[in-house]
Design a protein around this nucleic acid. Structure first.
Lengths: 343, 343
DNA sequence: CAACAAAATGATTGCGCTATCATTTGGCGG
DNA sequence: CCGCCAAATGATAGCGCAATCATTTTGTTG
């Protein structure tokens, strides 16, 4: 009954119980314990009970690091987003985790920021963990990143963007198309002299491109662009909004996020400008508070939760298959222009 | 020069290069490659260069699963929050990751929701990954969870709460004290007939308790409580706000989050109630938009980023020490009552 | 109840890496 | 130029688990 044994096994590093400890207590072979825990249907009821009892007695918690090495399945899914400080991406994270957790996968979160250089570093460290799948925000990567991801032979979903040449699967929307849609909307409202307030972010830049293309051919149209620092915030919106309004020739301001737009609203109100007649304002993201501002903010809604869910369910399907093959599928979930009271 | 070799080693499961492959190409022993990559100061410049060259040629990406098993250090920190859909916790996640990533730790994110039962499941799966440290939101756990965490001998920081009996370190604030402070504030404003709209969340419940205690002895005071479903949202705030206002005897409404308060503001405005004279409103969290609402929302500010940073830096310090010992430290970072225009 | 198949259990081995030795190499004073 | 010490490198042995195959037990059937 003594726990001490004759041969001092000094090499043990972790103090916790192992599979063999459980096996000894249960009076079976380690392999039987492994089966009782992972494939209980392969074991008789009586041994299963003995093992469960032994697990309780020893306080055994399986070591999935060892399990992962033995099976080369880590049970981890890497989820890479620019930030979680932004509600849109937080929504994606929440949705992905909601799908994966019930299936026993855990999420390794990585923040890749908005530059390929950051992404490169994060991708390498993430790959060293041998994740079973990867969800990666964006689809413009450095050549090195592309090569590494391709070599890795890991099911991958790029999200939140659109491309003809995805690394594997792609679920997202076209930022260029968002820009075009916003331009069309504001032109229809009669706006011609535009200001843009945008974060320094490649995808926001493509929305700007789309917007500029949308107004390009229209007589009398003009556009000034202002960039803000990170993170986007109301004060930034207000400051850059003031700069734009000071030029005296702006009748609409488009922002790369709702929070910037809120700052612009504040600035416009302090100047006594009528919204949307003297100044139209567009946000991006349809944050929870967008409908609550006064006036209610017109914006572009992206369904982050549905992108996250789709990415996760797609990966789960792939993970159920044993063979690895690239998907090549591209799913455009689109976006919705929400016309409230600021346009 | 041929890559094929005589003995077919069929057992290889992953197709990617291993340490031994790099070693062969570099013409050194595997151990030397390991050193060149992990402790480069122990290796001469010339061998370091040979190894780097071989790494490039083979496209080697270290397998940290194997490394973790060998060293019993996983390089993972588990970060457990109720949700990331809420900006307050997203802020914590962002801050923790910001501190840990530069030091080579990766974050395993877990969502524990608001119930001990969910927490219990998540904690077990998280512990099976043998994280090097854990950041856990809240400090009221089931007995089983407490026992598992104690056995695990992992540096742990509980956050976002206050207790006399932390499992290890604790960094947070007292929800009870928040309730007391809000009560004192509103009483001073002359409010007596209170309504509370709260999420079904143990910590929010303790804020409510504190609030009730705060108004308990005051003549003529009364309080009605309404619970909302998950997730908290403006419509919930509006609906429950309407219910409370319909009772005809409410002069202040306290909400468990800013977003609920926004809903109450909308309802009050639609009824033409003067804020704060006819109805005072308090939020919780000081979300980015709280100052932007009309009228600007009075709320309680929690510095999630600083809690996250403190937790991470504390853990990093502990991880630098080789011996494990519990800390027992308790750090109350407090909160700030922000008195804007709704009270 | 023998004979056999199927189910249950066990023994062995290796996943890819690093800790811990043992061994070799290089530098330097005498 | 030898001998000595330190620095550099190498060989060995696990880390804890599960895949695989070998063995034992159980159940079935004529």
């Amino acid at each position: 009954m003594s726990d001490d044994n004759d041969k001092p096994r000094a090499k043990r590093s972790s103090g916790s119980a192992r599979l063999t400890d459980v096996a000894r207590v249960a009076g079976v072979a380690p392999m039987t314990v492994s089966r009782a825990l992972n494939r209980p249907e392969l074991v008789t009821d009586s041994t299963r009970r003995k093992v469960q009892q032994a697990v309780l007695e020893t306080g055994y918690v399986p070591n999935r690091v060892a399990g992962a090495l033995a099976t080369s399945r880590s049970g981890l899914v890497a989820l890479l987003v620019p930030t979680v400080a932004h509600a849109l991406f937080a929504e994606v994270v929440q949705a992905v985790m909601g799908e994966l957790a019930p299936r026993g996968y855990q999420v390794m979160l990585g923040l890749v920021g908005y530059t390929p250089a950051q992404e490169e570093v994060v991708i390498e460290t993430v790959l060293s963990r041998r994740p079973d799948a990867i969800v990666l925000t964006g689809c413009r990567h450095s050549p090195l990143t592309r090569e590494r991801l391709q070599r890795a032979q890991v099911p991958l979903v790029e999200i939140w963007d659109m491309s003809d040449d995805p690394l594997d699967m792609l679920i997202g929307f076209s930022h260029h198309a968002v820009g075009l849609a916003v331009a069309a909307h504001l032109l229809e409202r009669g706006c011609r002299r535009f200001g843009i307030i945008t974060a320094d972010d490649a995808r926001a830049a493509r929305r700007v491109e789309g917007f500029l293309e949308g107004i390009d051919k229209v007589a009398g149209s003009a556009c000034l662009v202002r960039e803000v620092g990170t993170p986007s915030s109301m004060p930034w919106g207000r400051e850059k909004g003031a700069e734009l309004l000071d030029t005296g020739s702006i009748d609409a301001i488009v922002c790369s996020s709702d929070i910037l737009a809120l700052g612009v609203i504040a600035e416009a109100q302090s100047r006594g400008l009528a919204i949307p007649d003297e100044l139209a304002i567009m946000g991006f993201g349809d944050s929870s508070y967008a409908g609550a501002s006064h006036p209610a903010l017109s914006t572009v809604r992206i369904d982050g939760a549905s992108i996250g869910r789709a990415a996760a369910t797609h990966l789960l399907r792939r993970l159920d298959q044993s063979v690895f093959s690239r998907s090549g599928e591209v799913l455009d979930v689109g976006f919705t222009l929400i016309d409230r009271d600021t346009t």
